[in-house]
Design a protein around this nucleic acid. Structure first.
Lengths: 172, 172
DNA sequence: GTATTTGCAAAACCTTTGCTCGGCT
DNA sequence: AGCCGAGCAAAGGTTTTGCAAATAC
């Protein structure tokens, strides 16, 4: 069976080697933001004949093709997610590290206005919210104009603002 | 004479060595987002007896004390700026790498609402706009509710969105 | 006087790359 | 058959760290 990313690769005319197919499959797992190490671990589990250099080369290739986007949530490692058409942003749960995606029409418009006011044409934007679960039951409240996919992700490490949480002595 | 950052260090009870004083002074230059290398260059110009390891240790210390904030605008190096009370955001000129700061009341409110809708309490947020100078004369247009300080900064390297622009073969 | 901080150099970390071999079309 | 991709290992860049000497309080 053929993964979504693999299909995109074929459309772009990329050669589909076994390794790329495996990596494409891993990347097609929905709602995820793995770093290269994590991708490598998952891919190697499916096919031990994959080196980390290939993972690096592949994500770079896919990024250049517009199939993937590179993210930096702090912590020293780049993380990747499939490009989607509606631009979305991220809310990081500062307690668990979970990443929640959302998009907001009203917001896009406001950003364009801010840029224009400063004399710029908006090319792209990146918005990250760092928040804490509203502690009561109220944590349901239907997303209205907002689409949200919860997305469990790596270690609980996200930093408020951009303060790094690199614990002394912890590996980077 | 005593720089703003130095005063903060003393309040926090940090030992003020000559090197820290120099670095504090350099960091007190307003509206700037230098990376460690740049800090080192400027500090070394004032006092040649400073090593880059000390600069790293100092910015880390100041960050842990809440005096500095670490930023990542892409390009592989962390950049630092003094913590300020009014949260501001950044617009990066993708052609020149210049960073412009702004703040927006309406925007803060909207962010809180978005977080609330997802069931979170907003702790902090990071917003970065990547834009291109509106090419005509119109580039003046008074910032209305928006305060802006232009801030020339390092090399022209910032990336749109988070797509990396690491040119093949270019140093990281 | 003692605990911290510094400088230096080496290590650690993530990422890229040169080269040779292997595999896809 | 030819060419592009993969593996390995070494190099690249940024940041951290171990240790002895220097410095602040």
């Amino acid at each position: 069976m053929e993964s979504r990313i693999e299909r995109l690769c074929i459309e772009k005319g990329l050669k589909m080697t076994g390794q790329r197919r495996t990596i494409a499959r891993v990347l097609s797992e929905p709602g995820d933001h793995p770093d290269v190490e994590e991708l490598y671990r998952r891919a190697a589990a499916l096919d031990a004949r994959i080196s980390i250099a290939t993972v690096y080369r592949t994500v770079r290739l896919l990024e250049e093709q517009g199939i993937l986007e590179k993210r930096d949530f702090g912590g020293g490692r780049a993380r990747y997610e499939p490009t989607e058409h509606g631009h979305h942003h991220h809310l990081i749960d500062i307690d668990s590290g979970r990443v929640i995606e959302f998009e907001e029409e009203a917001h896009e418009q406001l950003l364009r206005e801010i840029a224009a006011r400063l004399g710029f044409e908006l090319v792209s934007a990146r918005l990250e919210l760092f928040g804490r679960r509203a502690d009561t039951q109220s944590a349901i409240s239907r997303p209205a104009a907002t689409r949200a996919d919860a997305t469990s992700v790596g270690e609980p490490s996200a930093a408020p603002g951009q303060a790094s949480l690199r614990h002394r002595g912890a590996a980077r």
